[in-house]
């Protein structure tokens, strides 16, 4: 036992030789955090700004456009964007509360895992709400702009088309987002989970 501590002492005294300049520390404490939650917050901040911008554009569209069908489409988009923006805002608020680093390792890891998992669930919900409606209404609006004479949403068939494409696109958007989240954060969540499991086994 002492042998290990003696050897460790050698490493310790060697490590002590390194001195960090106070200017470096001062710079570090003013830097932008590169933690997963901080990076997520930054990404979601941009997403929130973008969705608010789209929301404002749709509002202007609803106010200016006269064609009834387009107004209906824009109103549907507006509703979904309102829900989506609210969800993104919730994510942003959740990420603004930092995880308490003063707690023990197990507590901190559980909190990080929970926080990231919650955000990814929100992201999947947002993907279901925003992307399919954006794609469908965008496509119909594009068709209208290409041929303004077309009367849209006057026949049952048009509504069925809109509904059908939504039914197809919602699970696709959900699946793609889930896959993407798994690709981006899966390894990190697995790493957190493995360490939590190892620590929990000893409690």
């Amino acid at each position: 036992m002492n042998e290990l501590k003696e050897l460790w002492g050698e490493i310790r005294s060697d490590a002590d030789l390194e001195l960090i300049a106070s200017s470096n520390i001062s710079e570090h404490i003013r830097s932008q955090s590169q933690s997963t939650t901080a990076l997520l917050r930054q990404k979601i901040g941009w997403k929130l700004a973008f969705s608010l911008m789209v929301l404002a554009t749709i509002l202007v569209g609803v106010a200016l456009v006269q064609a009834g069908a387009i107004r209906i489409l824009l109103s549907i988009m507006l509703g979904f964007y309102l829900i989506g923006s609210t969800l993104i805002f919730q994510e942003y608020r959740l990420l603004s509360k930092s995880v308490d680093m003063n707690q023990n390792l197990l507590g901190a890891l559980q909190a990080f895992h929970q926080r990231i998992s919650d955000i990814l669930k929100y992201e999947e919900l947002v993907s279901m709400v925003l992307y399919p409606i954006t794609a469908t209404t965008g496509f119909l609006l594009g068709m209208y702009l290409f041929n303004p004479e077309t009367l849209m949403l006057n026949e049952t068939m048009d509504w069925l088309l809109l509904l059908g494409s939504m039914i197809v696109l919602v699970p696709i958007a959900y699946f793609i987002n889930k896959k993407w989240n798994r690709h981006t954060y899966g390894a990190h969540l697995d790493q957190l989970k493995a360490n939590i499991k190892e620590l929990e086994m000893g409690t």
Binding site: S35, T36, M101, L105, A108, L109
Partner: peptide, 9 residues
């Protein structure tokens, strides 16, 4: 330790 364990290495 909390920082290094929670960081995406």
């Amino acid at each position: 330790l909390n920082t290094i364990f929670s960081y995406r290495r």
